[in-house]
Design a protein around this nucleic acid. Sequence first.
DNA 1: GCGACGTACGTACGTTGTACGTCCGGCGTA
DNA 2: TACGCCGGACGTACAACGTACGTACGTCGC
Lengths: 256, 256
Amino acid sequence: MSEATPPAAATTRDEPRPSPPEPVAPVRPEPVVSVRPEQAVPEQAVRPALTRERIVRAAIGLIEADGPEALSMRRVATALDVAVMSLYNHVPNKKALLEGVAEHVANRLDLADDPSAPWPERARALVRAHRKMARDFPRSLTVVLSHKVDTPAGLRPAERALAVAAAAGFDGPTSVRAMRALLAYAVGTQMRELRVAEAFAHLGTPAADSFARLDPDEFPHVIALASELAENDTEADFEFGLDLLITALQLRAARA
Amino acid sequence: MSEATPPAAATTRDEPRPSPPEPVAPVRPEPVVSVRPEQAVPEQAVRPALTRERIVRAAIGLIEADGPEALSMRRVATALDVAVMSLYNHVPNKKALLEGVAEHVANRLDLADDPSAPWPERARALVRAHRKMARDFPRSLTVVLSHKVDTPAGLRPAERALAVAAAAGFDGPTSVRAMRALLAYAVGTQMRELRVAEAFAHLGTPAADSFARLDPDEFPHVIALASELAENDTEADFEFGLDLLITALQLRAARA
DNA sequence: GCGACGTACGTACGTTGTACGTCCGGCGTA
DNA sequence: TACGCCGGACGTACAACGTACGTACGTCGC
């Protein structure tokens, strides 16, 4: 390894790795003689080749580490150890990069489906897949939720949902509405969890003393249920609401 | 060919397009003599006195006009015809301003409640109030949804919801969960409508031809229901999902 | 050999949020 | 009446941002 690396080399660290001592040769010593082109390159393992895929991954990494508002083209560039403008050879602008992030994350949705299972269970699995995505990419979620995804990747969950609805025996319009209701619930849950998570990140337990200062005449129920409100078993909360929707749908399906 | 004009440019084109004829007196002609302080003010209508309230209102106006990402302190300042830094005498920073926006909008929630009505109707009214807010301040919604509101204003809807849940006979934990499920649904619906609205703002009807290009093997249901999917009766969609949740809650209440 | 081309890069511009210092007009006290 | 204080309005300044543009270099088809 690394025997006879004559010209200080270009680090070629492929990852978010600033490479401590070297100037990374931004100045390029000389265009001088020597170094016959044919034999110069191959074994040196130049650099992993900048690519839209790598850029998107780096962006996701930064978002998950520091939050979406901390993402900047400059930070992505330094994470990849390239110049800022090089990114623009693979991504037209920041908005497009964020769309790439959204699509990438959306593609991680686990849409495994067992058509032989009873439809309520299939529906549950579908909504739970959304929730799992929220757990895997918590901070990228805002990006996903605020970018329209009309690519095939974005439509795939819809396809699955409509398939399940058809299996339940719903007619066309009802299927669409049922899908939308479940989707709305999934999205809303994710938003709620996100806010809870961010709140906890900023302060310890903000609610505890906040409730104490409330006017007991105006907020009797909030105060009485303070302990329940402070507790956040997101899993149980999620399943509760999901259960409501599914049982209501079952009831509706049975009537037809 | 290098318009190397060193200082020449700068142009100082100040705005997109505000206030057609007037310079709006940004320069303040003179602090001259005359104008006795006692009788000077009332009829002259100097300037409405910069205030946090006015700043927040201006911000909301700008957000509703141009979208939340177009909001900048500089734009708020010019809208109010003051210098940028003057804003900071009333608002510590932009984030705080956005929280002010969120709180202001949240306060517009119509929480009228008739305790003598049957609880399912009261619950419906509560969720519908959220929806109405979404209709009144569509673009400010993202701001509201992404800012934790733990002020009394933010807790008021929770109080109402818990009161309704208590009227339905739910115990404490169930009340909290029911409230959260309804809230998640309301939030999710709003997010969905928002995305639909923004999509329509950008292009005519993007879906129509988008569906045509899909692989029929992978997206049979989406294609079959293309017309239903293209149609967006947000009102009916909303009521459908709300109905699911309410009937499921009624069922649960009846079992206790 | 040579041109065309794709990609990495540096420079530069306009816009953003906001720290900091200055200035002024009205108020409390002497 | 005089004076000093203070809060609010303002200008200047800076770092960080997104990105338009021009350039330099490696590779590939002739």
